[in-house]
């Protein structure tokens, strides 16, 4: 079973918008996949299905061998602990320090305190922000906040990290830093699925590219290119 498998997936929102139409895809462990396409093409819905923020209206979604089509609410935490999610707006808890934000994702698994502390310092080191452990999100730059949120996504050693426009709020230089970080994480063996509008990055990285338009996959290339004008 691949890491992510979708078969004939449709998603229609309550307001009648058909966000996804007959989407089928397999993503294997260790892959680095960009999801590209114009705004409103269904990229975010595609991503949201993977961590069960949305449920498919029709079709099958399997992530980490968990069937998400009939996933019960009380089973969602288990799924979300098995993967890491990185958002465009970082989604850090504003009243917690960088350390506490990263630790939170591990506390929910009820691991011992000492183990949490050790692992949090490890991932903070990986994103090179050990020295900012005690800072609050509002004291950090956008790039630093995104690094913290990546550290949070990695803290439970997931096999899969999903990112929805992680560089959307960042300037080009900072974006490159974040992309290099994802590259490193991928080299360490983690599967990465990333929705992005960043043409330069996609064209330079030469990874698998899935292009979406009007809720459908229109192109799926290994070593692909962005393929759209900005």
């Amino acid at each position: 079973m691949p890491m992510i498998r979708m078969r004939g997936v449709y998603k229609t929102y309550a307001n009648g918008v058909h966000a996804l139409k007959n989407v089928s895809v397999d993503i294997e462990p260790g892959e680095f996949v960009y999801v590209v396409g114009p705004s409103g093409a269904g990229k975010t819905t595609f991503i949201k299905l993977m961590y069960s923020e949305e449920r498919p209206s029709k079709g099958e979604v399997h992530v980490n061998s968990i069937n998400l089509s009939d996933l019960k609410n009380r089973d969602k935490p288990k799924l979300r602990r098995s993967l890491g999610v990185v958002f465009q707006d970082f989604k850090l808890l504003p009243r917690l320090t960088a350390f506490e934000n990263v630790a939170f994702a591990m506390e929910v698994t009820e691991k011992p305190k000492r183990e949490i502390k050790k692992r949090v310092m490890e991932v903070l080191d990986l994103v090179r922000l050990k020295q900012k452990a005690r800072s609050y999100p509002h004291e950090l730059s956008g790039g630093e906040q995104q690094r913290i949120s990546i550290a949070r996504a990695l803290v439970n050693k997931p096999g899969l990290v999903i990112a929805d426009e992680p560089t959307g709020n960042l300037d080009p230089d900072t974006s490159w830093g974040i992309m290099e970080l994802f590259e490193t994480i991928n080299h360490l063996g983690t599967t990465i699925v990333m929705a992005t509008h960043n043409k330069d990055i996609v064209n330079n990285m030469k990874k698998r590219v899935i292009a979406m338009e009007h809720g459908e996959i229109v192109r799926d290339q290994l070593r692909g290119e962005y393929g759209y004008e900005d």
Partner: peptide
């Protein structure tokens, strides 16, 4: 509200 949503998104159970 946002805090609660974030907690849920990073895998916290309702009781947590």
């Amino acid at each position: 509200k946002t805090e609660i949503e974030i907690m849920k998104l990073v895998g916290a159970s309702n009781s947590f």
